[in-house]
């Protein structure tokens, strides 16, 4: 148990700003805010239109921001031999991947929810819609983190994995987007419950899928 805590602390140190993985969570966050800022310029100062579409824009921006750190999520640890050393110490790939999902979510999920507040102001979203966006992000971002780690593990041996992982993540994230952003138009919370359920399933599958992918990559 203390071994897992040690690994979680290292993961967090790597993924948060100042860590070794290229600015970590700061870059996706700035990217997210940049999209929210550019959208009104592109659409024009039409307040009702912005308020109507703003929630969806926040969701798309969140999804794209989640793709940014994918290529540095798992690959460096495999290249530098960390997974080999963990395996020799009896720490399973599944455990490491489960911790990586948690660390990845902590590094972009909560910061994104905070950044959604200024983004909502920029897009002129009202209080109720903002509430649904925030609950939706809370329900959906763990699923995005899980898909991200799965894909990062699957593309770990590929040289052009970065671009490929983005392409792979988008279709897998569509269900999350449909239920998460879709509940904005109905204004109800039924879709959010489905988003949360999807997230739970994805989080439950990821350690096994990711662990198997890492072991397969090591054989080569």
């Amino acid at each position: 148990m203390s071994a897992l805590w040690t690994i979680l602390r290292r993961d967090l140190a790597m993924l948060f700003p100042g860590g070794g993985r290229g600015g970590g969570s700061l870059l996706p966050l700035l990217f997210f805010l940049a999209v929210a800022m550019l959208y009104p310029f592109a659409v024009g100062p039409d307040a009702p239109l912005l308020a109507k579409t703003g929630g969806g824009v926040i969701w798309v921006a969140a999804l794209l921001a989640a793709i940014l750190p994918l290529d540095r999520l798992v690959a460096p640890d495999l290249e530098q031999g960390f997974f080999d050393q963990w395996a020799l110490r009896g720490i399973s790939e599944e455990a490491v991947i489960a911790i990586r999902v948690l660390a990845h979510w902590l590094s972009f999920g909560p910061p994104l929810m905070v950044a959604a507040l200024p983004a909502a102001a920029l897009l002129g979203i009202d209080g109720n819609a903002l509430r649904i966006v925030e609950i939706g992000l809370l329900a959906g971002t763990p699923g995005l983190a899980a898909i991200g780690v799965t894909i990062a593990s699957l593309t770990v041996g590929l040289k052009s994995g970065a671009a490929l992982s983005g392409l792979l993540l988008i279709p897998l994230a569509v269900p999350l987007l449909i239920f998460g952003a879709g509940s904005l138009s109905t204004g109800s919370e039924g879709g959010l419950a489905l988003t949360a359920a999807l997230s739970l399933v994805l989080v439950a599958i990821t350690p096994f899928a990711g662990g198997a992918a890492i072991r397969a990559a090591r054989e080569n």
Binding site: T6, G20, Q80, G81, I91
Partner: peptide, 26 residues
Amino acid sequence: AGLLDERPALDEHRPLSNALGFWRNL
């Protein structure tokens, strides 16, 4: 088994004391 190969499994950006300290914690 302990393995020593061409990959040191030490975090590139961290000072050596921290990188070795991670393994000492484990």
